[in-house]
Amino acid sequence: MSVKSTSVKPITARAPSFLQAVGAVVRKDLASEFRSRELLSAMFLFALLVILIFNFALELNARERGEITAGVLWVTFVFAGQLGLNRSMAIEKDRNCLDGLLLAPVDRSAIYFGKMLANLLFMLIVEAIVLPIYSILYNVNLFHPGLILVIILGSLGYVTIGTLLATMAVYARTRDILLPILLFPVVVPLLIAAVRASSAFLQNLSMEFVWPSLNLLIVFNLIFIAVSYMTFDFIVEE
């Protein structure tokens, strides 16, 4: 047996701090994901398939690449991300883990932020694999620090609202088909800003063309985080 009796800590009265609680949820998600790897591999394969389909659907050729790369990338991320969000909450619901999490004596928003950060990490991991593959397949250089910043900001906003809505969707009868329908109309503004900013960076436009979209992206992130923080308690309330 690998579990030693000495490793079991005595139950202390002190409740964990907010950050400790968030960290614990993130660690739990990462640990379970790195054992099964079902979420990451599904997201990654799905992303590859989307890029493959785009190649034929749009006849991606050398001239057109520059302008539509940003769009193709974001559609890929959004679809792959949606798959991950759905699964990450469905796991909690199916095995009644969510109830267990909610019983923990921590602030409910710590659970939300933990799930959200774990989803963000999964999405960033997939993006970090997809970007070089896209660069190789289409012979474009995507390693632009600005683009990476936009991808991080865009993914943050996407999982912020995505985690909130996925938590609602898992309670519904039609949960698998419900999440994209709930999520996509709400994240449209974020996507528009993200695609604009990415495309401006990819075309090496001067910063005056980038700032409006980048500012919007930052503002959307703040609004989405604030509204999710305020409403999450109502979703998991029993």
């Binding site: 609202i161 909130l164 809505l165 609602m168 709930l182 109309p185 709400v186 994240v187 449209v188 503004p189 974020l190 528009i192 800003a193 604009r196 979209s213 919007l216 959307f220 609004i223 509204v227 409403t231 109502f234 979703i235």
Partner: peptide
Amino acid sequence: VYAIVGFLSVPLSFFSI
């Protein structure tokens, strides 16, 4: 909750477009 989130998204879409 969805009505609140959706309501925020409408003006944001307008500004971003």
